[in-house]
Design a protein around this nucleic acid. Sequence first.
DNA 1: AATGGAGTTCCATATTATGAAACAATCGGA
DNA 2: TCCGATTGTTTCATAATATGGAACTCCATT
Lengths: 253, 253
Amino acid sequence: MTNNGAQAVDRAAQLLTLVVQADEPISFTELYEDSGLARSTTSRLLAALETNHLLERDANGAYRSGALFALYAARHDPWSQVARLADSILRDIGAETGETVNLAIPSGDTVVQIAQVDSTYMLGARDWMQVTVPAHCSALGKVLYAFDALALPSGRLEQLTAHSLSTSDELTSQVATIRRVGYAVTREELEIGLDAAAAPVYGSNGDVIAALGVSGPSTRMRDNLDELGPLLRKHGDALSQLLRRRNRTKGVA
Amino acid sequence: MTNNGAQAVDRAAQLLTLVVQADEPISFTELYEDSGLARSTTSRLLAALETNHLLERDANGAYRSGALFALYAARHDPWSQVARLADSILRDIGAETGETVNLAIPSGDTVVQIAQVDSTYMLGARDWMQVTVPAHCSALGKVLYAFDALALPSGRLEQLTAHSLSTSDELTSQVATIRRVGYAVTREELEIGLDAAAAPVYGSNGDVIAALGVSGPSTRMRDNLDELGPLLRKHGDALSQLLRRRNRTKGVA
DNA sequence: AATGGAGTTCCATATTATGAAACAATCGGA
DNA sequence: TCCGATTGTTTCATAATATGGAACTCCATT
């Protein structure tokens, strides 16, 4: 075993990580069993984490994240933290596709971008960070409708181009396919010459909380949408995995 | 020096706490100097915290809170974390006064309770957690107006009792006093027989983000408002202190 | 009353964390 | 361009600590 002079810190951090990732109270015994450490070592390290406000115990003695985590969370918008966690994944997608990558969340009945990686091409999608668009015209929006993160609209829909969906029946029809294949696409529905694909991102309790998408000129995108969809689904799953609670009863797939 | 078998963990946690409390990038040298540890020890412990996703380094090598904090914050509402951090302070005020204690934040143009400790008396203020009241009728609301957390209303104001403020001029007049003394009071302005006091809570960047208040029957409260105000200001300062960024340039008063 | 489980404390000792010194890289001033 | 100072990293002898098995405490169940 190599010694980098921080074994105790590594072990304590391992226990801490189990608690933060579980995101619900976790017993001493569960931590002892999952960590593989001796009982006395586990007890001592947990006591140190508690003393330093990284963990605390509930009324039943189970452990949960401590005040230092609460302090950090009190000062930071959850969505910007999701964007931060997603950053390397967005960059990977950008590197793989060269196109503009976005992460978006539902807000009321619209879609809001919370992170973007710009295209490496000179002809690329604009900065959508401050732009609100009709959800049914975007791949990101279609995903959020399909996975119940946005309520489906009714009646006639605003058409931004001749290719836009025009009725809620058209949208409802696509929703079933999107749920089945696990991604959505738009072909010049938001703007002539602009195509996009998007896939869902699940939060810690299994609901879809965001959509991960790529957009770019139809001339480059059109023939690749059938590959982009699965790629985005894969990366959406990876981000979902980061956000998912991890403990024994639910497992890490 | 007593040995509880966790000195390395305590030291690592001390460094981690400096970074999380600073809430902006902090250099190796600053951490080394503030911690009192040897350079090599500081370097090794920071590397271990980085490896375990508790810290990360920015492009300039400065340290900031790591992905585990981002994960926690991504999953938790900031306001509920503020309430959690405030919990022991609310309980202290409840113990000292016996009255109902509330923590409230601005939401749009109203006041929303985010935490409450109930009165120990049988005659106590109701559970306000789900109730929206006109801000100008509550001590909490007056504090949020006075410290720019809520925009001052104009024109005539809704009067819930004969004692309620009826014009924005009346409110504006009180605002100057509230700013000067550091707390607000209401005397049967929300409901006949109900008095209250409140003081501001500052967030990490110096703005008022919440108000901390006590309410109860006028028969018990009326003669004590001049003591409750300063008490709430003191506890509001303590909570502000918990939330404030702490680093060298700003100091910890 | 006995037993088993959850969790804590003790302490001999094996192992690790420590910090001074050396080193490397960078920056600013002359 | 050179030099000194500063920032940060790595090495390694050794002092100090973290370890884990055993014993213990407390509690719930039979």
